[in-house]
Amino acid sequence: MSEFLQIRNVTMKFGELLADKDVSFDVPKGMICGLIGPNGAGKTTLFNCIAGYYAPTAGEIFFEGKRISGLPPYRIARLGIARTFQVVRPLKEMSVLDNIMVGAFLHHASAAEARKAAERCLDLCFLEEYRNKPAGDLTIGNKKRLEVARALATNPKLLLLDECVAGLTSTEVHDMVQVIKRLRDEGITILMVEHIMEAIMPIADKIVVLSHGEKIAEGSPSVVVHDPMVITAYLGEKFARKLAEQKAAAGEGGAL
């Protein structure tokens, strides 16, 4: 089961800057796995290593038992890993449907079939009414869902979502969470980088926490949020100590 996505001792250096240091974890098939951490923790860098945009300085990444680290992005996409970009990248001059069709063409040679597949993704991501609009004209919330729809059209086994709810309004966040749940129900494994805890905690099966390029915690959401190292990383040492004291006090007083 853990043969699905394996990240093994991945280190990524840019000159002297150490973005990821010896990171290892597995993403089992069928899960929603969250990758969280403060700004500059190395989440997006790790994503770019998985998707082939960087070749890790050291370490290896395996997908379904096959070593994928070092392969170019298009080969990784063909193996069944699709990604979205943190800063949305609509193919601006093309219509929303055409954007998604580009993804669908990966497994459908004929335009008619690609269109049919793209229309399904259009529906799945609540984009039907924008079908013929130029992608550049969409609002940010729709552009983010277009990223997902386009990646989805490549019929991936693993979907990498890079901060797909960042910068959205609460309704838009709600829509996106609906979309992600739908995808999981379709059997797609999801690895998502996220900043916004409220979006990821309720849906993730597993959370991996990075801080300063190192993995500091891994486990189910309820375990991870109570991890002292995670609290320290997110809220600072001082606050973490205070919180621990408070908890201790509350524990003594209110224990049943």
Binding site: A51, Y53, P72, P73, Y74, A77, R78, A82, R83, F85, R89, L91, K92, E93, M94, D98, M101, V102, G103, F105, L106, A111, A114, R150, A151, A153, T154
Partner: peptide, 20 residues
């Protein structure tokens, strides 16, 4: 479609499996 996608964003096209 692939040519247009490459024009509009080569990295995006590659993320969708296009050997640009």
């Amino acid at each position: 479609y692939y040519l247009k996608a490459i024009r509009e964003g080569q990295e995006t096209a590659e993320s969708l499996g296009v050997d640009a």
